[in-house]
Design a protein around this nucleic acid. Sequence first.
DNA 1: TATGAATGAGGCTTCATTCAT
DNA 2: AATGAATGAAGCCTCATTCAT
Lengths: 197, 197, 197, 197
Amino acid sequence: MDVKRSYAAGRRELTKAQNRETILAAAAQVFAQLGFARTTVRDIIRATNLASGTFYNYFNSKEEVYQALRDAQALAVRPRLHQARVSAVSAEEFFTGSFRAFFGFVAKNHTEAAPASERFRMDSPQVQAGFAELRQDIEAAMARGLLPAIDAALLTAALTGVAFELAEKVKAGANVEEMTRFATALFLGGTGALSKS
Amino acid sequence: MDVKRSYAAGRRELTKAQNRETILAAAAQVFAQLGFARTTVRDIIRATNLASGTFYNYFNSKEEVYQALRDAQALAVRPRLHQARVSAVSAEEFFTGSFRAFFGFVAKNHTEAAPASERFRMDSPQVQAGFAELRQDIEAAMARGLLPAIDAALLTAALTGVAFELAEKVKAGANVEEMTRFATALFLGGTGALSKS
Amino acid sequence: MDVKRSYAAGRRELTKAQNRETILAAAAQVFAQLGFARTTVRDIIRATNLASGTFYNYFNSKEEVYQALRDAQALAVRPRLHQARVSAVSAEEFFTGSFRAFFGFVAKNHTEAAPASERFRMDSPQVQAGFAELRQDIEAAMARGLLPAIDAALLTAALTGVAFELAEKVKAGANVEEMTRFATALFLGGTGALSKS
Amino acid sequence: MDVKRSYAAGRRELTKAQNRETILAAAAQVFAQLGFARTTVRDIIRATNLASGTFYNYFNSKEEVYQALRDAQALAVRPRLHQARVSAVSAEEFFTGSFRAFFGFVAKNHTEAAPASERFRMDSPQVQAGFAELRQDIEAAMARGLLPAIDAALLTAALTGVAFELAEKVKAGANVEEMTRFATALFLGGTGALSKS
DNA sequence: TATGAATGAGGCTTCATTCAT
DNA sequence: AATGAATGAAGCCTCATTCAT
């Protein structure tokens, strides 16, 4: 019976992980199709083979699923962004590396959203941590003399705004390198000017 | 009889206009508190003294109310932005005037939003028209030689992203002039650099 | 002022009658289009130029409008049916006259109903009176020796059933004379057989 | 585990079947009391111990419930009617058997309807199939020489009209045999006359 | 742990009707 | 008498969540 149990437990573990992934994959698809607001837990369940009750063994709400998805994305993209920034030896590399990594990620990972769906951004802990990390990297770069010493909070905000706005262009098919060049030049020139003002 | 009718009509229309305003005001408050997605028509109605059915004499959905709010805002702020841009005689004036008008409007008109609520943007015709106008103004400024001839679509996106992102700082209490200076310097330097790349 | 008042009163009378007719005409059309069950008072009002409140100066519900329509129809067709029956000098004339008058009326007065609409029959007082009259005419015809002395209640029911069922064929385009011949022969032969059983 | 599952499934399905029957029984009662048009889904739910949402696990609308009821009735009565007709070796048997089966069924299965409620007929597939079957049986009987060769469509309509109209008498307490005799004689004589005209 | 039917709160909307003008 | 906006009851239906199996 011990053997049986441990075997069963092993199977169960596997199934647990699989079910979680099943739900996440279904949710990613449904969110992309309907948008977050119009998606219901039922929609997610219906996109799987699982029973409605099973959902609640893994998540407590669609918000939790959404955060898990965002966290997974952030976990996937953050190290790359961070790496691009800490290894930069010039301001140009700092910006180019960051934007290229971000736009590249967006180009690869975005799914077609419903056309008229609302645009929104939910600040999950991981996403917030991502922005905090960006700011820390900026401050570190300023300390290293890579970037001029300007207001790091505002620069973070500006970078974020431009990155997300151009990301829409990328989703619409724009070229990653062109977006990267544009954003890099904008911030290179912009931070140069800010350092003198 | 004519007098009576016109008097009656006047009274009626006054009440109607008042009710419309009542609903819009309630909706603005509830949207700010709960965010658009979590707001229901019932929430809006409950924030007024009106009966549930009355809502439908004025709007067909929360989306319609939202668009009416956005349109009203856009109508209020667009002429000012447009004016600031067409009267600019230098790139600096172009950016400074635009950002100052926008941040000033945001500082005066924003309502307290729930801190972690989703951020979203609904593209009502008026809002879209506002972006189209921005782009046309940019292109006109390029034609006038005020701005260097760079990709107007990308510049529009970047301006939009920075403006909305810094607007959050303004809502959080940041100084309008400081935000204006920062954004202006960023884009002055940025567009200068882009024109040479 | 007296003159003025009486003139006004005259106008009003006229308007009153007109409004009633307006509502009845609109109701007839809407009932035909939507069926009785799916028709609402609002639908009827919307099919007129009148205000919603005005409806209640003339009728208290759609049921009342419906009865008024049925009564008007019954009033139009009953005298003809009655006349056809009392003037009959043979059983054949009795049936032929009745059916021809009924089918002819149906052919002229039916309006296209929604295809999948429910079929229903509301027994307004006038309609009930119409059936009572049929039965009386039947009994009178039996007394005159025109019809054999069989169960008048059952004969009334059978005539009614056949008449309404064949009326559907008439509405679908069947020939009035053919339906009349068929029904007449059926009841001539049928009553003959019943008198011998 | 198999045992457990099948047991559980058995229990579940039992409850499901019971709930379905509960809803159907409640609907039959409410339809009879209020008539179809005035019945709401809520009325049906209120006539059970079930929660409002439960209704929608079984039916999507009152129309669906109604069709289920009609279909069940049609399924119950059609084979008997069909059997009575195909086994008939004379016109008299054809009519007698049909009417007796139908009136007998009505006498046993009818529920008390509100007296002045509308009478209506919804043409569910099963009901339509019932009429089609009647017509086919009639045509087959004509082919066999049992019935004279007259217009089968009109005969079907006439039989239907008389059957439903006399069924009202049965519901009101009339004797099944007497109704059967009356209807049979009517159609025996009637078809005889029609064959000669 | 998985299942999936039951639950009932709560969303949306329409409607008949009232009543101030 | 006519108007038409306001009313709120009441319909419809979906949903997140529970819980017996």
